[in-house]
């Protein structure tokens, strides 16, 4: 990984301070993850009585039990499907819209943009009844598409907002030279703006993957078929109204967290490789 250095800390004290901060915060961030993983290796009776981070007797079988008991195979497939489609659709629709709001001129542009911004503000509780009535009218209840479209809507306002901020930063002269080269609007969008906005797109992907991956309220509302539901439905088996199976739940949560961290690992490269790499190819 190549990072161009802007600020160089030369003296030792500065380096010491910098690393102290980094390591301290890093420990605070990583500890819960270890705890979660350690708890996944304990049993229901030792989760809250055994305080060692990793127990003497590791119950690795918790992971397989959690996997089968929660029918993770089916739910994993569903969740991957929903996440890829929702986030994929979201990225394309919102980059296009953000590009238009940032780079093109047309009547009602500002009013429309304002409308999207308004959408971010009204909190969700209260909308579910109207949404359900709508989905019923459209015959989208208990269908995959009926789950995906509202989620694209839920994510796109913020995505457009983030992307517009970054599109606004693209220098005009790059756009002009592309236009001289004979690019039309679609060309500028696809060959110039899209590659240049990769860090921002990566951010949008990271945020929305997490949101879609963990979503369950909408899933419970839209689906009645178990076979269509996403991963959090599987985890519900371990959390009763009164009874929670902590060790298995932690094993399940540990499993579900891995794909999200992987997505982040892949995407953060785009954040870092940043504008220079994109500009060369554009």
């Amino acid at each position: 990984m190549r990072i161009s250095s802007i600020y160089k800390i030369k003296n030792g004290l500065g380096k010491f301070v910098a690393y102290t901060i980094l390591i301290f915060v890093a420990l605070a961030c990583i500890f819960p993850l270890f705890w979660m993983f350690g708890s996944a290796l304990k049993t229901q009776s030792t989760v809250f009585s055994d305080f060692s981070l990793f127990p003497k007797h590791m119950h690795w079988e918790n992971f397989t039990i959690a996997w089968t008991k929660a029918h993770f195979g089916m739910y994993f497939f569903n969740s991957v499907l929903y996440t890829v489609i929702t986030v994929g659709g979201l990225v394309f629709f919102s980059t296009m819209a953000a590009f238009a709001f940032s780079r093109l001129d047309f009547p009602f542009k500002n009013a429309l943009f304002l409308m999207f911004v308004c959408m971010m503000m009204i909190p969700l509780p209260g909308q579910f009844v109207a949404l359900y009535v709508l989905l019923t009218k459209l015959h989208l209840v208990n269908t995959r598409i009926g789950y995906i479209l509202p989620q694209i809507d839920a994510g796109q306002a913020l995505a457009i907002f983030i992307l517009k901020t970054f599109f606004d930063n693209i220098p005009r002269d790059l756009e002009d030279s592309a236009r001289i080269d004979g690019c039309n609007k679609w060309g500028i969008y696809w060959h110039l703006a899209f590659p240049l906005a990769k860090p921002a797109i990566a951010v949008v992907i990271i945020f929305n993957c997490l949101a879609v991956w963990n979503e369950y309220l909408l899933a419970m509302l839209v689906f009645s078929d178990k076979s269509l539901m996403p991963l959090p439905r599987g985890l519900m088996v371990f959390q009763g109204t009164h009874m929670t199976e902590y060790a298995l739940l932690m094993a399940g949560v540990s499993i579900t967290v891995i794909p999200i961290i992987l997505v982040y690992l892949v995407m953060q490269k785009y954040i870092i490789s940043g504008i220079t790499a994109g500009a060369l190819k554009g």
């Binding site: 489609i85 208990n142 269908t143 995959r144 598409i145 009926g146 995906i148 078929d225 076979s227």
Partner: peptide
């Protein structure tokens, strides 16, 4: 996806 929704 619309078709898959209908199929199910």
């Amino acid at each position: 996806s619309p078709t898959s929704g209908c199929v199910s």
